[in-house]
Design a protein around this nucleic acid. Structure first.
Length: 903
RNA sequence: GGGCGGAUAGCUCAGCUGGGAGAGCACAGCCCUUACAAGGCUGGGGUCACAGGUUCGAUCCCUGUUCCGCCCACCA
């Protein structure tokens, strides 16, 4: 016994720091675009600079790292581009909050200074999430780290904006958009979250102009907007009202007359009163209804950009205006209702639940708001982006997500890309105060393109954050320059992300990639589970299921955490991970650690492997574990290729723990102790080390740190790598490929018989309460000579693993008295226990066994007595089941005999 | 109002294209056997939400029901 000394338990912390530094130092993360080789590339979904690593990032980066490490080891020219997103509104909010602590408003600071402050903030805190990704073990090419607002990416943004503008795919116009009164900016449709809220449905009477005794009752959830009503709509086929179309009502609280119009789209005959107030400036439906009228209905704004009532709404009675002006909409609502009530115009108030739109960043209620904005005309971009998925050039995993993608893309609306905030890519457009023309330019301009006037000012709006993210797969590779990186690594191989940003990001990347690179930005889209409420304190905290990745890493180690996430990757949409499970995989890491200690303790100092000994011929156990190793290698490769991460993880888990450790390590002990001779010892040492070393390489993508630590401790000769570079680190070693010739069903079958024998004896020992320290005699009566010889040859295994002092095997062995009996395939096993055997216990045990097997017999008899089954089921199935039934019956007969002999 | 997903052991979750139900933790018994007590061995525990249907055969496919979650949508 010698070899290296390792601590008794795996200690992750120091190991992780050491090796991550080692890899970085050796530049293994860096991809060389000139190196040749088949490329494999991934761009990271850039986390927000404001972000802090939550379990979603942890899962996302782990899966990418697995793919990247796997491909890198497989010899591909592998690049993983990291970076962060400037996250316009989110980041601006963070810095604003910081200022608010000192009671400072950003307007007091001024735009330039504020933006400078955000940059400062970014410099100080923006690297946080990057460092956290490093702790996860992410093997990104950090030299290529990008930021959506760095110089190169900003150039890409401009190029795209200007090109789309020139192509007529970007336009500016006054439209009704979603407005966040808190963030003071427009939002795109998908940035609005709808939440059901309890509200009230107010029924209000509008008197007809020509006869105040006739009143039209409208129903509304937002009575305050009536100050901006410019019509009342009814269904043109409604017998109650259709004759009123064309007449007018006197709008209460104002001296405005508004027409009664017919609109079959806006008005639902079944709902409310059948009459609808129309406020085109503050409601999307009403806006469209207004456009359908000829001439179009006027649009009267009643709210400012803070969602407060304007002081100068046309036609509103001065005394009313005086009261409500400057009030927030919600407050004004109560006042308007009160005023109407005083005039007897409030008919009734019903409870009513309806969806309210909220800002996805700050959760404020979003107002439909009329304002000039910039839009991308998405129709022409969406067509090709749909096609590329339809014809399989882009594939989603799991495929089901393609429908989600289609649904949205086929109903896509123009994308509002302007934001009235300060942090972001400022729109490269200049307004001329002389001639009113708009100049859009790749470079900053000082004169109007039309009139050459100098009286121009740049648009103050910035672009939606997602505009720059949409370019990420090619902007990070140097576009618009035609770089070598771009040529080699675009399109990327796979995008790994969660489903919540299929619309925000995936769809837009595909559109932009196709438009500007004529090729979709990735071939595969792997959609993994999503972690909800990672920062949404309400739900998680009350449920108590918040899991902080960094705490988990500290507690259990990165590898255990990564392995847990990998085992998790199959599941559906929600993640509710129990920490105990991570603990389980921490134990797994420790298991690997100790198995490695065992192996190294059993290698001699001068041990050198002989690759010719890596063969099934030396012993049953060796042949068996080699067969299993190659079988698992095959499974893991196949699983990873299909993005079945959990299958890869569980295959490895089962192999290492339950086959290599539980069986092979135990089976190897007799040979290692050495009383079998030098040759078997050497052969076993070789296989033992070979399997461990191969398993480590198989595991490395999932558990990078512990595998490196152990691998580096193995004798150099065991780490049989062909190139010098590959010998340096497991990270750059070769990923195992299965050797089909090693997979041998016959050997696995033979091994199974030995295992069955051992299990049967252990069962007897356990159930009969035979002390583990007691060595016993076992007699095996085999059905035929071949089996006998086989067991004879491998009897040493059973002796060690079942603690047998004497093992007798033969066709003519007889059952002694006072014997516990077990039946395995092809043999009966007797454990005689002179004087000690408790007949009652043995009877119970046998009865339990018989009951169990009887159940099986019942099931199979029933099945096989069914003529339809015998006729129609596949022949193999019938044959297999018939054989099983026979075996079961034979086993039961033998067990029953034994029971009877007990008396 | 549409669409999607889930319901499997006490808990957290696997189970690929239909042929005798799995893991981790928890539980019971026996063991500190010189790799590992973060361990070993043995064992208990599930009418796979409910009701129909297709099939020789359904946890798996179809229909419906109940409960939970999500996405989309302009019901005033």
């Amino acid at each position: 016994m010698s070899g290296k000394e390792l601590p008794k338990a795996y200690e992750p912390k120091s190991v992780e720091e050491k090796w991550y530094g080692f890899w970085a130092e050796r530049n293994y993360f860096h991809a060389d675009e000139t190196a040749g080789g088949e490329p494999f590339s991934i761009v990271i979904p850039p986390p927000n600079v404001t972000g802090s690593l939550h379990i979603g990032h942890a899962l996302n980066s782990t899966l990418q790292d697995i793919l990247v490490r796997w491909m890198r080891m497989s010899g591909r020219n592998t690049l993983w581009v990291p970076g962060t997103d400037h996250a316009g509104i989110a980041t601006q909010n963070v810095v604003e909050r910081q200022l608010a602590k000192d009671n400072i408003d950003r307007h007091a600071v001024g735009r330039d200074k504020f933006v400078a402050k955000v940059w400062e903030w970014k410099k100080e805190y923006g690297g946080r999430i990057i460092n956290q990704l490093k702790r996860m073990g992410a093997s990104c090419d950090w030299e290529r780290e990008r930021f959506t607002m760095d110089e190169g990416l900003s150039r890409a943004v401009r190029e795209v904006f200007v090109t789309l503008y020139e192509e007529g795919l970007i336009y500016r116009g006054e439209r009704l958009i979603n407005w966040c009164p808190r963030c003071h900016t427009a939002l795109s449709d998908i940035e609005v979250e709808h939440e059901d809220e309890k509200g009230k449905l107010y029924h209000i009477a509008y008197p007809l102009s020509h006869d105040h005794n006739i009143r039209l009752t409208v129903a509304t959830t937002r009575p305050e907007t009536m100050l901006g009503d410019t019509a009342v709509a009814v269904h043109p086929l409604d017998p109650r009202y259709k004759d009123l179309i064309g007449k007018t009502v006197d709008l209460p609280l104002t001296n405005r007359k508004v027409p009664i119009i017919g609109d079959s789209i806006l008005v639902d005959l079944e709902f409310g009163t059948g009459a609808v107030k129309v406020t085109p400036a503050h409601d999307f439906n009403d806006y469209e209804a207004g456009q359908r009228q000829k001439p179009e209905l006027p649009r009267i704004k009643i709210l400012n950009d803070k969602a407060e009532i304007l002081p100068d709404i046309p036609d509103v009675l001065p005394e009313v205006l005086k009261q409500v002006a400057g009030r927030p909409a919600k407050k004004a609502r109560g006042m308007v209702v009160e005023l109407l009530n005083e005039q007897g115009l409030l008919i009734k108030t019903d409870e009513h639940a309806h969806a309210v739109g909220k800002c996805y960043r700050c959760k404020s209620v979003v107002e439909p708001y009329l304002s000039p904005q910039w839009f991308v005309k998405t129709g022409p971009l969406a067509g090709p982006a749909i096609k590329v998925v339809e014809d399989g050039r882009v594939q989603f995993f799991p495929k089901g997500w393609e429908n989600t993608y289609y649904d949205w893309m086929r109903n896509i609306k123009d994308w509002c890309i302007s934001r009235q905030i300060w942090w972001g890519h400022r729109i490269p457009a200049w307004f001329c105060d002389d001639c009113g023309a708009i100049t859009v330019s790749r470079t900053d301009v000082t004169t109007c393109a039309r009139c050459a006037g100098k009286n121009i000012r740049q648009e103050t709006d910035v672009l939606d954050t997602w505009f720059s993210s949409a370019l990420w797969p090619f902007s990070t590779l140097g576009w618009p320059d035609q770089t070598k990186e771009l040529a080699v690594y675009y399109p990327t191989s796979v995008l790994v992300t969660s489903f919540d940003i299929i619309f925000f990001w995936v769809a837009r990347m595909i559109m932009m990639g196709l438009h500007f690179r004529r090729e979709a930005p990735f071939r595969h889209v792997y959609i993994h589970a999503l972690v909800r409420d990672a920062e949404g304190q309400k739900m998680s905290k009350s449920k108590g299921n918040v899991i902080d990745p960094l705490v988990m890493i500290d507690q259990y180690g990165t590898d255990a955490f990564r392995f847990t996430l990998t085992a998790f990757a199959a599941q559906g949409r929600d993640i509710k991970l129990a920490p105990e499970r991570i603990e389980g995989y921490r134990n797994f890491a420790n298991k690997i650690w100790n198995a490695s200690r065992f192996v190294m303790m059993n290698l001699d100092d001068e041990f050198t492997p002989n690759s010719e000994l890596i063969t099934p011929n030396s012993s049953l156990a060796d042949g068996w574990i080699l067969s299993r190793l190659n079988s698992v290698t095959k499974d893991v490769q196949a699983a990873l290729a299909d993005y079945r991460f959990n299958d890869a993880a569980s295959a490895l888990y089962h192999f290492i723990w339950h086959e290599y450790c539980d069986w092979y390590l135990e089976l190897s002990k007799p040979a290692l102790i050495g009383d079998l001779g030098a040759a078997p010892r050497k052969a076993t040492q070789t296989v033992l080390a070979h399997v461990l070393e191969t398993a480590l390489r198989l595991m490395h993508p999932i558990m990078p740190f512990i595998t490196e630590e152990i691998w580096q401790n193995l004798p150099e000769e065991v780490r049989s790598q062909k190139s010098e570079v590959r010998k340096e680190s497991i990270m750059v070693s070769a990923y195992p490929v299965a050797d089909e010739k090693m997979i041998n069903a016959g050997i696995e079958q033979d091994m199974k018989m030995v295992m069955d024998l051992i299990l049967a004896i252990r069962n007897i020992r356990g159930e009969m309460n035979i002390a583990p320290s007691m060595q016993i005699t076992v007699i095996v009566k085999v059905e035929n000579k071949e089996l006998g010889e086989h067991l004879e040859k491998s009897g040493g295994y059973a002796k060690t693993l079942a603690r047998i002092k004497e093992l007798r095997i033969g066709v003519s062995e007889e059952k002694p008295k006072n014997t516990a009996t077990a039946v395995i395939r092809g043999a009966e096993v007797y454990v005689p226990l002179e004087g000690i055997l408790d007949l009652t216990q043995e009877r119970d045990r046998l009865q339990k066994e018989i009951a169990k097997i009887s159940k099986d017999i019942e099931v199979f008899s029933k099945k096989l007595s069914n003529k339809n089954f015998v006729d129609k089921a596949p022949k193999e199935v019938v044959e297999k089941d018939t054989a099983k039934l026979e075996e079961f019956k034979a086993k039961r007969d033998k067990l029953e005999q034994s029971l009877m002999m007990l008396g």
